[in-house]
């Protein structure tokens, strides 16, 4: 019987990705779920472009952009933490990751301000299709940010290089998803 060549670690092609391969299964699942949600949002807008544009005007585009910069900066700090750990700087790595988490928490704070502002204006999840999708998509992402911060906390504690790469990979996926959410929900009109 011919031998099948397999990458070291027994994870096949997943072994060539940084961090734990299981995290990449999760990352792909999340990207597909968010991708379907964003595709659904685009189709829903097709059915009621005027209604969607009028609703979108209630969003704070500056806060959306600010949060994009906040999350990208947090991702950068997480990448620097992995780099520092690879260079053998244990405490330096922890400091970078702590900074990444602190900046990531700013994202949550800004988003809570946004949600509170919308709810005060009477714009809730049942207002119309736009706001239903806005709350569902950004709310699901918000939960991922919370989960990401928990994961970053755990890998800061148990900070082997593989753990840090795995935690940072999840965090970068959360970044990437927001980079796609921001233009579609806040800007395109």
């Amino acid at each position: 019987m011919p031998q099948v060549k397999q990458a070291p670690g027994g994870w096949g092609p997943l072994s060539t990705l940084p961090g734990n391969p299981i995290m990449w299964v999760l990352i792909w699942s999340e990207l597909l779920v968010f991708g379907a949600a964003l595709g659904g949002f685009a189709v829903a807008r097709l059915l009621d472009p005027a209604g969607f544009d009028a609703s979108q005007a209630h969003l704070d585009r500056f806060l959306g952009a600010l949060n994009t910069m906040v999350l990208l900066t947090s991702g950068f700090l997480a990448a620097m933490a992995v780099r520092a750990r690879a260079d053998g700087e244990m405490s330096g790595s922890r400091r970078w990751m702590a900074a990444s988490m602190a900046v990531g928490a700013v994202f949550l704070y800004v988003k809570i301000i946004e949600y509170a502002d919308k709810l005060d204006a009477g714009l809730d999840i049942e207002t119309n299709t736009f706001f239903t999708l806005y709350y569902l998509i950004t709310g699901f992402h918000f939960l991922h940010v919370i989960l990401g911060l928990i994961i970053l906390g755990v890998v800061t504690w148990k900070n082997s290089l593989e753990n840090l790469e795995t935690g940072a990979a999840f965090w970068h996926m959360v970044d990437l998803v927001w980079v796609l959410i921001f233009p579609l929900i806040y800007l395109v009109r």
């Binding site: 990448a79 970068h172 395109v188």
Partner: peptide
Amino acid sequence: ALLLIAGLKSGLILWFYLNLRRSTPGW
């Protein structure tokens, strides 16, 4: 332009932060 910028930003995150540049062409 907005969607192209989003694509570029996503590519940068994948390439440098997620370090796909060191992965296989398939990925």
